Computed example of a mutant assay.
Amino acid sequence: MDNEINYSSKKQESTLSLLPKTTQKNMEKTDQIKYLKAEYNKAIVKLLQERIEKLTTKEIKKLTTKDIKKIKPKEIPWFISRQIHAFTKKQLVTFNTEQIVQFTTLQIRSFQLLQIQFFKPEQIVAFTKTQIQAFWPWQVPAFTFIQIQVLTLEQITAFTCEQIKYFTKKQIRSFRLSQIQVLTPTQIQALKPNQIQALIDCQIQALKPEQIQAFLPWQISALTAAQIKALTEQQKKALTIDQIKAFTLIQTQALRKEEISYFTTKLVTKINEINLYNQATTNKCHLNQPKI
């Protein structure tokens, strides 16, 4: 291998030696200039980063909107936590989408609750899925109704189960129907009883049958009588046996007679199926027993 490298380098040298000396010198100079430029750029970047990191909170607060606009996207990650804390409303609303997407996990987690509320809708939709997941769960309640409503469907599905648990009842009610329809089974199962009860009729009816089936039995028990009434025929038919068994007396009273009859039949049919299966299994076991 070493012989191959030596051979190729010798070949390059021999090729260069065939060129006029002036050409050789020019090529050497070009390589030197490229190297020096690269080193100079590295030094400038390091100097800029150090300069930004040394800015005090007072100096950060003094940055004008023009200064904010001049910050290159690649320079955004250089700001440290105490500096992020210092950004004012006027400064935060100035950041463009190219700058927004460069905020790191540590920076996002450094935002104060009030700072999160300062972001404009067009800035909120710029956050990537990774950035959405970077927010601390306790930061989630800071999102305003308008901010929640502008969240893209991709951003909605990005929220972790822990983050979902922190949405307030008012925030839950602000979800658009299309946002409700993209909630994943794991996200649905993360909802707490008070969050489930916060869902309004049209949100309940927007849930797909497979989403209804994702609810755990104890979550079904949390539904109010009004929410049970709001369920569509398709949604009621989608309910599983375990979910039906979790119905409370108040929930059952909210059902129509024909619906109770339908659920009773469904339960009886399932019980009969289980009994037949158990009987068949028992008979099979008896047949397989060795004769004495």
Results as ranks from 00 to 15, higher is better:
Leu16Gly: 01
Ala222Gln: 01
Thr184Met: 10
Glu53Phe: 01
Ala226His: 06
Lys170Asp: 11
Ile212Gln: 00
Val93Gly: 08
Phe263Val: 02
Leu113Val: 10
Ser17Thr: 05
Ile212Phe: 01
Lys42Val: 04
Met1Asp: 10
Lys284Phe: 01
Pro141Ala: 02
Glu53Gly: 09
Gln12Phe: 12
Asp31Ala: 15
Pro77Ser: 05
Glu210Cys: 04
Leu63Arg: 00
Gln197Asn: 09
Ala230Asn: 02
Ala226Pro: 00
Ile188Thr: 03
Lys42Ser: 15
Thr252Glu: 12
Leu114Ser: 09
Ile274Trp: 06
Phe127Cys: 03
Leu231Asn: 01
Phe118Thr: 06
Leu255Trp: 03
Pro193Thr: 10
Glu98Tyr: 11
Gln211Arg: 10
Leu113Asp: 11
Asn275Trp: 03
Thr94Pro: 07
Lys229Glu: 09
Ile80Thr: 11
Lys270Thr: 07
Lys42Ile: 06
Val101Cys: 04
Gln187Asp: 04
Pro217Gln: 10
Lys245Cys: 05
Phe103Ile: 00
Ala230Thr: 02
Ile180Tyr: 00
Ile241Thr: 14
Asp67Ser: 15
Ile244Leu: 15
Gln213Pro: 04
Tyr35Ser: 13
Glu259Asp: 14
Tyr7Gln: 15
Phe175Glu: 01
Gln117His: 07
Thr152Asn: 02
Ile116Gln: 03
Leu113Ala: 14
Lys11Val: 06
Leu18Met: 12
Gln243Arg: 06
Leu55Ile: 08
Leu48His: 10
Tyr40Gly: 05
Leu183Ile: 10
Gln234Trp: 12
Thr265Glu: 14
Val125Asn: 06
Ala142Met: 05
Ile76Thr: 09
Lys192Trp: 07
Gln181Gly: 07
Pro209Gly: 03
Leu267Tyr: 06
Phe119Arg: 06
Asp242Phe: 10
Ser81Val: 09
Phe95Cys: 08
Leu63Glu: 00
Ala86Ile: 02
Ala158Asn: 07
Lys46Asp: 14
Gln133Asp: 08
Gln112Thr: 12
Thr30Cys: 11
Tyr7Pro: 00
Gln99Ser: 02
Leu113Lys: 14
Leu16Ala: 09
Gln149Arg: 15
Asn3Val: 13
Arg109His: 07
Val93Leu: 09
Glu39Tyr: 08
Ile212Lys: 01
Thr269Asp: 10
Gln107Ile: 07
Val45Phe: 07
Arg256Ala: 13
Gln227Ser: 02
Lys245Thr: 08
Ile80Asn: 07
Lys74Tyr: 15
Phe111Asp: 05
Thr23Ser: 09
Lys169Glu: 14
Lys89Val: 08
Asn3Ser: 14
Lys169Ser: 15
Ser9Asn: 09
Pro77Asn: 09
Pro141Trp: 02
Gln219Trp: 08
Thr130Ala: 13
Ile196Phe: 02
Glu28His: 12
Gln163Cys: 08
Gln235Ser: 02
Pro193Cys: 07
Leu255Asp: 05
Leu207Lys: 01
Thr168His: 03
Thr269Gly: 02
Asn288Leu: 00
Ala280His: 05
Ile180Arg: 00
Leu199Gln: 01
Gln133Asn: 12
Phe175His: 04
Ala43Cys: 11
Pro141Arg: 05
Lys129Met: 09
Asn288Ala: 02
Gln155Ser: 08
Ser261Ile: 14
Asn26Cys: 11
Lys165Arg: 15
Ala38Trp: 09
Ala38Cys: 07
Pro141Met: 03
Leu151Trp: 04
